[in-house]
Nucleic acid binder design. Structure first.
Lengths: 227, 227
DNA sequence: ACAAAAAACTTTCTAATGGTAAGTTTTTCG
DNA sequence: CGAAAAACTTACCATTAGAAAGTTTTTTGT
C-alpha cells in the first residue's frame, strides 16, 4: 500500500500547488511549469501523475469541493436540531476557512472548466445535489413538501450567487456578511415568528462557534487546502 | 469615419467569433487560430485588431454585458409603472434571446477572466452596480430604505446564482423556470398581498410579451451577439 | 537477500500556441 | 495623383502541453 500512498501524496501535493497557481496567476496563467515550480518538481512529474492538464484541474476542483463537503460533515456531527443542522449546511459554505477572496476567485476560475469537462460537471452536479438534499432534509421540518423543494433549490442558487460575487467583486465579502445575507433570506423564506427567530439565531451562533473551533483546528486544516 | 467604421466592424466580427469559440471549445480551448478560422481570417488579423488575447476576451466580455444592458434599456422604454420597470430588469436578465445554455456556459467561462483582468473586473462591477441601482430605484416604491438596499443586493446575487446554475448544470434551465424562480423570491421578499400579487403578475406578463416581440425582433438581434 | 517488475522521476523532443516584427497591399485624404 | 495611414500577410520566436524514451528508486516474489 506504500506505493499508492506515495502516489496519492504526490497527487495531493501537486493539486495543492495547482490550486495555488490558479490563485496566483488565474486559470489562463496557470502553466504546468509553474505548478511544478510551486511544488518544487519538474513539469514531467506533474504529467506523470496526471494524464493531462484537464485531469490536474479536475483534481483541484474535486479537492475544493470535497473540502466543502468535509466541513459540512464535520459541523453536522455537532448539530442536534433541525435548526442547527440547517445552519451547519449554511455555515459550512461560508466559514472563514474556505470562504475567502483567494478561494472564491479560484473557484470562479475553476468553474470555467465545468462546461467542457464531463468529470468536472459530474463533481459539480453531485456537490449541488448533496447540498440541495441536505437542505431539503432539514427544511421539511419547517415547510410544506412543495415549499421545501423550492426553497432548497432557491437557497442553493443563492449560495452560488454569493460565492460568485465574492470571487468577482473587488471589495472583499466577509464570512459574516455572507452568513447575514443568508439569514436575511431565511427570515423571508421560512416561517419566522419571534420563537423561531430566536431558535435560528441560537442555532446559527452555536454552529458558528463550533465552526471556529472545529474547522479552524490544526487537525482539520491539515486535510484541507491549507490556504 | 470610414476607417474607424471598418475597424469597429472587424472588431465586432472578431469578438463575435471569439464568443463563438468560447461557446464551442471553452475558454481553455479557445485559441487565436480558431477565432481567426471562425471569422474567416488569419490569426494575424486578430492580433492586429486586439493587442493580445486578454484584450480580445475583454471585448467579448464587454459585448455580452452590453447586450444585457441594451435589453434592459429596451424593455424599460415600455415599462410604465414601478411594477413593470421592476420586471423589465428581471426579464431582461432572463429572456430567451440571451438566457440560454450556450450563453450561460460562455459567461461562466468568461468570468474566470475577471479576477486577474482589471478591465473585466471594472466591466463586471459596473454591470452589477447598474442592476443594483436600477432595482433599488423600483424597490423603494415597495420597501423601506433599508430593505430596499438589502433586497436589491440580494436579488442581484440571486440573478448571478441562477446564471451560474444555468451554465454549470447539465439539464437545461429555461427562461420561464428562471423567471419563476425570481417570482418566488419576489413573493417572499416584497409585500405580497392579493392586490400586489395581481399587479406583479400582470406587469411580468406584459413585460414578457414585450420582450418576446421587442427583443426577438430582427432589428434588435442585429445589434446582438446573434446566437 | 536479491533479482525482476513496477513505479517514480528525468530528460529530450515535437507540435501548437501567443505574440512580435517586418513587409505588402489597400484605403483614405490633402 | 501621391503620401500617409490603416488593413492585412508572412515569417519568425519563446513558451506551452504533451509524448516518448531512458534512468533511478521502490516494491515484491522467491
Amino acid at each position: 500500500m506504500r506505493s499508492t500512498s506515495i502516489r496519492s501524496i504526490r497527487r495531493a501535493e501537486l493539486s495543492r500547488a495547482a490550486f495555488e497557481a490558479v490563485v496566483r496567476y488565474g486559470l489562463r496563467g496557470t502553466t504546468l511549469d509553474k505548478v511544478g515550480e510551486i511544488a518544487g518538481v519538474s513539469k514531467g512529474v506533474v504529467l506523470h501523475h496526471f494524464k493531462d492538464k484537464s485531469a490536474l484541474l479536475e483534481a483541484v476542483f474535486r479537492r475544493s469541493n470535497s473540502l466543502l463537503s468535509e466541513s459540512a460533515v464535520e459541523l453536522y456531527r455537532y448539530a442536534e436540531t433541525p435548526y442547527e443542522r440547517f445552519w451547519a449546511i449554511i455555515v459550512a459554505n461560508f466559514c472563514d476557512t474556505i470562504f475567502n477572496r483567494r478561494v472564491c476567485q479560484a473557484w470562479v476560475s475553476l468553474i470555467s472548466e465545468v462546461p467542457h469537462n464531463d468529470q468536472c460537471q459530474r463533481i459539480q452536479y453531485a456537490c449541488n445535489e448533496r447540498i440541495r438534499t441536505n437542505l431539503e432534509h432539514e427544511l421539511k421540518h419547517f415547510l410544506s413538501p412543495d415549499d421545501t423543494k423550492r426553497t432548497a433549490r432557491h437557497l442553493g442558487m443563492l449560495i452560488d450567487g454569493v460565492w460568485v460575487r465574492a470571487g468577482l467583486m473587488p471589495d472583499r465579502l466577509t464570512s459574516a456578511e455572507a452568513i447575514s445575507e443568508m439569514e436575511y433570506a431565511v427570515a423571508k423564506l421560512l416561517p419566522y415568528d419571534e420563537i423561531s427567530a430566536t431558535k435560528h439565531k441560537e442555532a446559527r451562533k452555536k454552529i458558528e462557534t463550533i465552526a471556529d473551533i472545529a474547522l479552524g483546528s490544526k487537525a482539520f486544516k491539515e486535510k484541507s487546502l491549507q490556504v
